[in-house]
Design a protein around this nucleic acid. Structure first.
Length: 665
RNA sequence: GGGCGCGUAGCUCAGAGGAUAGAGCAUCUGCCUUCUAAGCAGAGGGUCGCGGGUUCGAUUCCCGCCGCGCCCUCCA
C-alpha cells in the first residue's frame, strides 16, 4: 500500500513536470517527513529545480502543488518549510485497505525459480556462531523471496572432499589410530561433531609440531578425492555423520534445505571436464609457460583489470601479469576449488550439460524431503539447477573468489548468468576479547587490545552453535519458569524454545551485513530492548487483549476484512488527535515496501528494523490506551482493529525472520 | 604493495544529499490495585576519524591522509 501510493505520487508529479516544464527528472527523491502531521511523503524536489527554473524553491513548490491536482488516494499536497512538498494520504482509505489485507498488485510474479545457496559448512566439525549468521541470513532471505511470491530452491553445498575433512581423517587414522569400526561407532554418538571439533584443533597443532604431518595430509587428501578406497570410505562416513549433525542443529532454528550438492559428485561425475573444455575454448583459461605459475592453467583474478594506457597494453601484449593470475589447474593437473566452483555454477544455470544423480537424504518432521547428490541416483527425483537467478550467501572473505567465478561465466559468454549471480556477502562473526577470555582462551596482549578476534576452527577457537542454543534455551527457560510456573513442563519448554530462537535469529539479523558482529554472550542472551523477545512480547500483549476480552485475535482480524467500514475509521484517524495512532497504521502498511527493499538490497536487517519499529509503536499505543476499559463502543472497536492489524503485520514480519510467537510469555 | 570493508553517544549499532543526527545497552529519576514491568515515561551523554573539494545545503558524494579488520597460497 505504502509502496503503491509512493509510485502513484511519483508518476503524477513526473507527469506534471514533463507537461509544465518539459523536464524529465525521474526518479527523484521521496522521503518521509519527520513528523506524522507533516504528511506521509516529502519531496525536496523544488530545491533541486530552483536553479534550473530560476525561481525560489518555495515558489516552485507552490506551483507544483497547485499544478499537479488531485491524486487518487491522497488528501492534499502542501508546501512546507523552505520548499518541501509534503503529501498527505487519505488515512482512512489506506487503513481500510490495510485492514482488508489488500496486497499491492504488480501483476503475477515471475514464476522463474530462484536458487539460494547458504550454510555450506565444511562437514568436518561442529557448526559455530559464524555458520549461524550465514544460515539465518540465508534462511530469512529465502522466506522473504517466498513471501514476495517467488519459487525458491535452497541448496547447501557440501565440501566433503577438501582438506578440512582430510585433516579430521588424519586425526582419526594417524593420531588416534582408530579403526573404521571404531569411527563408525563414534559417528553414531550424539556429540560426534563436537568430538571432531576438538580433534581438528589437535591435528592442526600436530601439523605445527611434526613436519611429517603435511605429507600425510596430502596423501589422505588425494585418496579422498580419488574415491573407491578405505580412506575415502572413512572420510565419507565422517563427513556424512557431521553433515547430519549440521542439519539437526539448523533444524533447531527451523532451517531446512532442499538439496545438498557434494563436491565428491562434482569430481566423480566429471563436472570439471566439461567446464575445463569450455574454459579453454573460450580463452578464459590460459596455460602459463613461465614464472611462478609455470605449467598451470590460470585466469585473471577478479578486480585486477585496471585501466591502463594504450602503450602499457601494447607493451604487455596478451600477457597476464603474475600478480593478477589465479591458478585454476595446478601444474600436477589437479583442479583448485575455484575451478570446481565454476563447474558447479555452470550447472546451477543449466549451462554445463551434465547433471547430478539424486538420493533422498533427510526427512524433516513436517514431511519435507531433503535430497543429496549421488553418483547413481534414483530415477524419480525433483529437478534442481538450471535456474536463471542465484544468490550465494557466503562471507565477504570470499568476495574475490566469488567475483572470479562470475568473471569466468562472463568470459564464457554467459553474461546473462553472470548478471543474475548475486554474491550475498556478509561480514564474519568474531568474538570480543572479553568473550574469548570467558571461554578460557589465552590471548596475547595485542589480541586483548583489538575490538574483536576472528573465530578459528584450527585453534578450536569459537562458540559452537549447539552450545549457544543450549545456553539460550536454559536462560529462556529460567525466565519462563519464573513467570509461568503453573504451566506443564512441555509447554514451558516450547515457549522457551520459541523465545531462544527469537533472540538468536533477531540478534543475527539486526546488524547490517557489512558490520562485523563482535559476539558477546551478554548481548546475545539479552531478552530486553531491541531483541526478538521484545517483538514477540508485543504480539503476546496484543493477543492478551483479545483473550481477556473474550475474543480470538485471529478471528477478529479475519472479520475486519469484510466488516470494517470507512466511516468507522475516519473519525479517529483524520484528526490531529489521530496522529499518534495513525503512525501505527502507517508503519504497518510498510511491510510489503520493506520486503521489497530487503530483497533489492539483499539486506534482512531492514526487516529487523521494521519489526522493532512496529513493536515499539505498539508498546507505546498499548500503554496509552487501555482498550478493554474503553467505554465508547466505536472507539473501542477502532482500537481493537488497530491492535489486530498491527498484530497481524508483526506476526507476518516475524514469520519472515523465522521467528514464531508463543501464546504466552 | 594491491583489492574490499569499517571509523557516528561510555559500549553495541542504525541513518547515506535535505527539516532538531537516532535506537538499544549502561548510568540516573519516576511508573506494577489497570489488557502481563521481557514493558512505559523522562534525564544526562555527539568537533558523525582528520584535512580539502563539489553543492543553496555534506555526517552522507569526490579526493587525500590517519587508524582498524579481512582478502590477495600450485589451501579450501
Amino acid at each position: 500500500m505504502y509502496r503503491y501510493l509512493e509510485r502513484r505520487l511519483a508518476t503524477s508529479v513526473a507527469r506534471f513536470l514533463r507537461g509544465r516544464y518539459g523536464l524529465e527528472i525521474e526518479p527523484f527523491a521521496i522521503e518521509q517527513p519527520p513528523k506524522p502531521e507533516l504528511g506521509e511523503y516529502a519531496l525536496p524536489l523544488a530545491f533541486e529545480l530552483a536553479k534550473k527554473l530560476r525561481n525560489s524553491p518555495r515558489k516552485i513548490a507552490e506551483e507544483i502543488v497547485v499544478g499537479v491536482g488531485p491524486i487518487e488516494g491522497f488528501r492534499r499536497l502542501e508546501v512546507a518549510g523552505a520548499g518541501y512538498i509534503n503529501a498527505h494520504v487519505d488515512r482512512a482509505a489506506v487503513a481500510l485497505a490495510l485492514a482488508r489485507d489488500q496486497q499491492d498488485s504488480d501483476g503475477p510474479p515471475a514464476q522463474q525459480k530462484i536458487l539460494v545457496e547458504h550454510s555450506s559448512i565444511n562437514p568436518n566439525k561442529a557448526a559455530h556462531v559464524g555458520h549461524l549468521r550465514n544460515a539465518i541470513l540465508g534462511d530469512t532471505f529465502v522466506r522473504l523471496l517466498r513471501y514476495a511470491g517467488h519459487t525458491v530452491d535452497v541448496q547447501n553445498y557440501i565440501d566433503n572432499t577438501g582438506v578440512q575433512v582430510a585433516d579430521v581423517v588424519v586425526g582419526f587414522l594417524h593420531l588416534e589410530k582408530k579403526t573404521r569400526l571404531e569411527i563408525e561407532q563414534l559417528a553414531r554418538q550424539p556429540g560426534f561433531d563436537h568430538y571432531c571439533w576438538d580433534l581438528y584443533a589437535k591435528v592442526s597443532l600436530w601439523y605445527e609440531e611434526d613436519s611429517s604431518g603435511k605429507a600425510i595430509r596430502l596423501d589422505v587428501l588425494h585418496q579422498i578425492e580419488q574415491g573407491g578406497n578405505d580412506t575415502a570410505a572413512v572420510a565419507d562416513l565422517i563427513s556424512t555423520a557431521v553433515l547430519r549433525r549440521h542439519l539437526e542443529t539448523m533444524q533447531r532454528l527451523d532451517i531446512e534445505y532442499d538439496f545438498l550438492p557434494r563436491e565428491s559428485e562434482i569430481l566423480h561425475l566429471r563436472f570439471w571436464e566439461s567446464a575445463f573444455a569450455k574454459l579453454k575454448d573460450s580463452g578464459v583459461l590460459v596455460f602459463e609457460t613461465q614464472g611462478r605459475n609455470k605449467g598451470c592453467w590460470v585466469m585473471r583474478r577478479a578486480g585486477t583489470l585496471r585501466p591502463r594506457s594504450a602503450e602499457d597494453i601494447e607493451a604487455a601484449g596478451q600477457e597476464l601479469p603474475e600478480e593478477d593470475q589465479k591458478v585454476i589447474v595446478r601444474s600436477n593437473g589437479t583442479v583448485g576449488y575455484i575451478g570446481k566452483d565454476i563447474a558447479y555454477h555452470l550447472w546451477k544455470f543449466g549451462l554445463l550439460g551434465r547433471d547430478f544423480g539424486y538420493q533422498p537424504f533427510f526427512r524433516y518432521p513436517g514431511g519435507h524431503q531433503c535430497w543429496i547428490s549421488a553418483e547413481r541416483g534414483q530415477p524419480e527425483h525433483p529437478h534442481f539447477g538450471g535456474v536463471r537467478q542465484i544468490y550465494n550467501v557466503i562471507d565477504s572473505r570470499q568476495a574475490e573468489a566469488q567475483n572470479t567465478v562470475i568473471e569466468a561465466l562472463r568470459g564464457l559468454g554467459c553474461g546473462e548468468a553472470a548478471d543474475h549471480y548475486t554474491h550475498f556477502s556478509y561480514e564474519m562473526v568474531a568474538l570480543t576479547p572479553r568473550c574469548a577470555m570467558e571461554l578460557g582462551y589465552r590471548l596475547s596482549d595485542e589480541e586483548k587490545a583489538r575490538p574483536y578476534i576472528e573465530v578459528s576452527g584450527r585453534r578450536g577457537f569459537g562458540v559452537k552453535a549447539d552450545d549457544l542454543l543450549d545456553t539460550l534455551m536454559a536462560s529462556a527457560r529460567q525466565e519462563v519458569d519464573s513467570r509461568h510456573g503453573q504451566l506443564p513442563d512441555s509447554e514451558r519448554q516450547e515457549i522457551a524454545r520459541q523465545i531462544s530462537i527469537g533472540a538468536l535469529r533477531y540478534f543475527m539479523q539486526k546488524y547490517t551485513k557489512s558490520s562485523v558482529i563482535a559476539f558477546d554472550f551478554k548481548d546475545a542472551l539479552s531478552f530486553e530492548g531491541e531483541t526478538g523477545p521484545y517483538a514477540q512480547y508485543a504480539v503476546v500483549r496484543a493477543t492478551n487483549i483479545f483473550r481477556k476480552g473474550g475474543m480470538d485475535a485471529d478471528a477478529f482480524a479475519n472479520q475486519l476484512v469484510s466488516n470494517l467500514t470507512l466511516s468507522e475509521l475516519e473519525p479517529f484517524l483524520a484528526t490531529q488527535a489521530g496522529n499518534e495512532i495513525w503512525e501505527l497504521w502507517l508503519v504497518s502498511a510498510k511491510t510489503a515496501y520493506v520486503v521489497e527493499q530487503s530483497i533489492a538490497a539483499t539486506e534482512p536487517a531492514y526487516l529487523a528494523k521494521h519489526v522493532f519499529q512496529l513493536a515499539q509503536c505498539f508498546n507505546t499505543f498499548y500503554h496509552r490506551h487501555p482498550i478493554l476499559a474503553e467505554t465508547d463502543a466505536a472507539k473501542k472497536r477502532f482500537l481493537l482493529a488497530t491492535a489486530a492489524v498491527v498484530r497481524r503485520e508483526l506476526v507476518r514480519a516475524l514469520g519472515m525472520m523465522g521467528i514464531s510467537v508463543p501464546p504466552v510469555m
